[in-house]
Each structure stands twice: as structure tokens, then as C-alpha cells.
Simulated assay, not measured.
Amino acid sequence: MSFSSEFISLLFLAIALSMDAFSVSLGMGMQRIRLKRIAIIGLVIGIFHIIMPFLGILLGKAISNQIGELTTLAGGVLLFVIGAQMFFSAFNHEVKSRVLPVGAGLILIAFSVSIDSFTVGLGLGISGVKIFLTLFLFGAASCTLTWLGMLLGRKVHGYLGTYSELLGGSILCGFGLYILFG
């Protein structure tokens, strides 16, 4: 396989793996999040999209693909729970106890959207791809698509007002269900 065909294949794979980060960030962007926080969220999700496939590549030579199904299940459940919490918190204006994209909440979100890249890393570890190129493309694509999703979510929030939290939570729940059953 030539470098250009491998690059194009890895780029498309990176974009496909980043679509969950885009979807989740679209929902998160509907919350009132400052641009500085959006930048940090994108970077953290990008870093997780480097760490998780790297761990997968390292373990791919020693671990079977059966673990991939469990990590996908865990990621889907996490996204659904975060989305459901966001959705139902829109009805309760007194207590806002949702997973916020700061601290441990940001780590949980970044982990849940990057867990599928771990399973891909398991397979890539066996195939012998260019590790640095793969990790760079995964991180760059997820960071960029996260920023794009959050900025689009911010714009949509301006049009939807209080209903944006319901829509954002629905998007997260829907994506979690898609991962679980799609």
C-alpha cells in the first residue's frame, strides 16, 4: 500500500471515528459554553483520540477482538446516561446535576466518545499501520470536528433557547442507542 493511499484510508477512518465526537459536541454546544472552554474540550477529546487508539494498538497484538464489543457497549451506555441526564435536567430548573464538560465530567465525555477508537486500535495494532500518522490523524480529526460541532451547537442554541437542552440530550441519547443497537 502506497503512502498516499494509506494516508487517505487513515484520514477517512479518523473522520468516521470522530463523528461521535461531533454529534456529542453538537449537543454539548447547545449549553452556554464559552469559547475558551470549547477550545479546551476539543483539545481534551483530541488527546483522548490519540491515547485510546495508542493503547489499543499496544494491546492489539496481545488481546483478542472480543474485548472490542464490551468497550463499544460501555461507550454507548455512557453516552445514553449523559444524554438522559441532560434531557431530564431541562425539566428540573431547580437542580442542575448533569455531567458538565469540566474536570471529571470532561474526562468521562472524552472517554466515552473515544472508546471506539480503542477497539479500532486493537485491529490496527495487528495490521502494522504507521502509528504516528494514525494517531496524529485521529487526534486532529476529532479535535476539529469537536470544535465544529460545539460551534454549530452554540448557533443552534441561539435559535432554540430553552429547548436546546432537550435537543442536545436527545442527540446524546440517540447516539448512545445507535452505538448500542445500531
Rank of each mutant, 00 (worst) to 15 (best):
M1Y: 12
M1R: 14
S4I: 14
S4T: 13
S4R: 11
L10A: 09
L11Q: 09
L13E: 07
L13G: 07
A16Q: 10
L17F: 02
S18W: 03
A21N: 14
A21E: 11
V24M: 13
L26R: 08
M28P: 03
G29K: 06
R32Y: 01
I33W: 04
I33S: 01
L35P: 02
K36V: 11
R37N: 12
I38M: 10
I38Q: 13
A39W: 10
I40F: 11
I40N: 08
G42R: 00
G42A: 06
G46F: 06
G46L: 03
F48G: 08
I50G: 10
I51A: 11
P53S: 05
I57L: 11
L59Q: 07
K61P: 04
K61A: 10
A62Y: 15
A62Q: 11
A62P: 00
I63H: 01
I63P: 00
S64N: 15
N65E: 15
N65S: 15
I67T: 11
G68F: 02
T71E: 05
T72V: 15
G76V: 08
I82H: 04
Q85W: 07
M86Q: 15
F87D: 08
F88E: 03
S89T: 13
A90T: 10
F91P: 04
E94T: 13
V95H: 12
K96A: 09
S97I: 14
V102I: 15
G103W: 05
G103L: 02
I107Y: 07
L108D: 06
L108E: 03
I109L: 15
I109C: 10
A110G: 12
F111M: 15
S112G: 10
V113D: 05
V113T: 15
I115L: 15
F118A: 04
F118L: 14
F118W: 07
L122G: 06
G123I: 11
L124T: 05
L124G: 03
G125M: 06
I126M: 14
S127H: 10
G128K: 05
V129N: 07
V129Q: 12
F132P: 03
L133G: 00
T134V: 09
T134K: 01
F138E: 04
G139S: 04
T144K: 03
T144N: 01
L148F: 14
G149S: 07
G149C: 04
M150P: 09
L151E: 07
G153A: 09
G153I: 09
V156Q: 01
H157R: 15
Y159P: 02
Y159G: 09
Y159C: 11
L160H: 08
L160W: 03
T162A: 14
T162F: 12
Y163F: 13
L166N: 12
L167G: 07
G169H: 06
S170Q: 09
L172N: 02
G174C: 09
L177Y: 04
I179G: 04
F181C: 00
G182N: 08
